[in-house]
């Protein structure tokens, strides 16, 4: 406890660094997954290929991906951008399937009805399909956010600063409270983000009380 109090400024800094890696990755995974999922649903024969294909990305272990990705990106292994792209890929692996399922769950009768009353395809997507798929999309987003927050810390072994640095420092110097604080803060951060997502869902989708599950 004393160690944690003495190192509070550092823990705060690392928490911020952690968020700066995780949040852009979660957001871009969500925003990229939507059009992919939409397109996959439109072109039926490709749906299973796209959905399973992106899902397969999740089979790639995280540390090796952090190391291989710079070859394609032309960045350094320790670059923030490299880490964010890798995390985005893992997010996509989870999000494309849930987004495709969410958009697919919209009742076809509703879809036909909105076309019949004159919605253009774009307007129908944004004002009918997206809101109706909202709760299921939120459920997928919550899974992505939790897993991204916990994945970030692996990059610490490469020297990227995040809450994971509390693990590497703690291990190298034999400080148990450092590691405990890291695990605790990661869990708290995941919980906090989850609560924020649920709250945002309630505000944006007041009709779906009871959350996304």
């Amino acid at each position: 406890m004393e160690w944690i109090l003495n190192n509070l400024p550092r823990i705060t800094d690392l928490t911020l660094a952690h968020l700066l890696l995780a949040l852009p990755a979660v957001a871009s995974a969500f925003l990229i997954a939507l059009p992919i999922a939409w397109a996959a649903n439109r072109v039926r024969p490709l749906r299973e290929v796209v959905v399973s294909g992106t899902g397969l990305l999740y089979a790639i272990p995280s540390l090796p991906l952090f190391i291989v990705l710079p070859i394609i990106l032309g960045t350094g292994v320790r670059d923030t951008f490299n880490v964010i792209v890798a995390l985005t890929i893992f997010g996509l692996a989870l999000m494309v399937r849930s987004a495709a399922d969410a958009l697919d769950s919209v009742d076809s009768g509703v879809r036909l009805a909105s076309t019949a009353v004159g919605y253009s395809p774009a307007k129908r997507f944004f004002s009918v399909e997206l809101p109706l798929a909202g709760p299921a999309l939120l459920a997928g987003l919550r899974v992505v956010s939790v897993s991204t927050i916990s994945l970030v810390s692996v990059s610490a072994v490469l020297g990227v600063q995040s809450l994971g640095s509390l693990f590497t420092d703690g291990f190298e110097r034999g400080i148990v409270p450092s590691i405990a604080a890291g695990i605790l803060m990661t869990a708290l951060l995941a919980l906090l983000l989850d609560v924020l997502l649920i709250a945002a869902g309630r505000v944006i989708m007041p009709w779906a009380r009871g959350g996304g599950r």
């Binding site: 939790v146 916990s150 590497t168 703690g170 148990v176 590691i179 990661t186 869990a187 919980l191």
Partner: peptide, 19 residues
Amino acid sequence: SGLVRALPTLGLITLAALF
């Protein structure tokens, strides 16, 4: 199964190693 997704693997390994 939900909790384990939130557990940072590196933290788990290093903590166990210290013990």
